[in-house]
Design a protein around this nucleic acid. Sequence first.
RNA 1: GGCCCCUUGGUCAAGCGGUCUAAGACACCGCCCUUUCACGGCGGUAACGGGGGUUCGAGUCCCCCAGGGGUCACCA
Length: 484
Amino acid sequence: MDKIKVRFAPSPTGPLHIGGARSALFNYLFATHNGGELVLRIEDTDLDRSRREYEDEIIDSLHWLGLKWNEGVDIPGPNGPYRQTERLDIYAKYTLQLLESGQAYYCFCSEEELEAERKALLASGEMQKYSGKCRSLSDAEKAAKFAQGIKPAIRFRVPEHEEYVVDDLVRGRVSFASDDIGDFIIVKSDGIPTYNFAVVIDDVLMGITHVIRAEEHLSNTPRQLAIYDALKLKRPEFAHISLILGSDRQKMSKRHGATSLIQYRQMGYLPEALFNFLALLGWSPEGEEEILAPAEIMNAFTLERVAKSPAVFDLDKLNWLNQQYIKKLEAGELAELVKPYLEDSVWNEQILKLDQEHYNLMVMAVRDHLVALSDIKQEVEVFLAGLTYENEAKQLLSEEDVLPVLEVFGDGLGEFMPVDEVKSYLKRLTKELKLKPKNVFMPVRCALSGRTHGPDLPSMVSFWGCDETRRRLQHSIEMIKEWR
RNA sequence: GGCCCCUUGGUCAAGCGGUCUAAGACACCGCCCUUUCACGGCGGUAACGGGGGUUCGAGUCCCCCAGGGGUCACCA
């Protein structure tokens, strides 16, 4: 068997979508699992909507996700160029071949005409396909149209009574009748080929052995098969993976919230988490473990285990996965990852003043509370904000036996710093006062932070240091007296 | 509307004719752990869309219906 070669071929008409990312991922997984190669091709034949910025953005997203390819628009290879608009002369040769053999023909119909035709067909309930009006124009008629200055499109003449069969690697055998397909345009009037045409030429020339793409392309496949046949080209294998749906079971769109990879990146989702999550959407490993590193997924990935049914994007599960990955982060890693979010927050100035030790102490103290990295902004507030009291804390502090506890805590406060020392000090106090741990920890927590819950108390005390801790304690003691 | 695809708990899903009185995960609920919140541990609620076949036996195979989705563009 030939070496496996797959491709991901996005259109640079917007940021990389979740669905596109998953298609890319499955191609990547299939390639790496089988020791094959991945090509990144840019399908920019829609001149109006394609933009170079999007191309860069897509590549950036792909890299961020952790995907790599062997050749493509940014990596020179033997089958370039990899941008379709740079391959126009290549398509032209095949167009000519089709035209000369009569398998394609010029179509002079205007868009208005076609639109009207379509509407009429829709209204009458008939099959919506091109009427074939320009199918058999005489040379004279064609010359007349050209003379009028009309720029024709080129249509592919779909053979009659053919059956196109796809042995899809995930869906099994699917067949289409050619009679249900109207002659379709392969070259637009501006000379740019359309998707269904260019994709065939490119996949063949680039040596693609397996076309893995979203299910929305399944009904395009017979058109492409017709072109393979007309040009006597060898067909690749096909695998159509199911769509990703929003929570309302509709195709994912903007109104479902964040749909581009960039947005998830900005919100602070880790690439490993997205990689893992996307892989689990439509594919499942044999074992029961679901938290899998990229390498493990590559190892286990096969098309046989790809599901046919569409999958709803489950943000809850992504959140859970992301949290799992964040929990595994070490201080240094977390500190780095979280930095941009803090720099972007109101705490930036204070954070700049912190030494590495304090900074790490703080982020590690809240690490297990983070669902996404951006949560750091809220989580860190208790360390950096001034002392204000939540109602519940106020209530607790107003209880009878709280004051003595706070005073004793303040008296014994030394010049310590490490978290462990604070912790053992608090434990010791608990024993000496013959109180339940809760009756020591909670008053102190409320007095120092103004809140009934938050990060680990010893970490906070250690972070503030004895001066700030004393200051907060004194303030609270005064407040308590005032409240009485 | 034509064609095509899909259909196991709220969600992701395992299952590929008997071991299914149907796994696991997320979410939810409860208990435990605990200085709070979280984390973690344990447990619980919850599903084979409907109807016909085939078969000794069907979630698993076939047909019909229903529902959902995709596609029918000079968009990809």
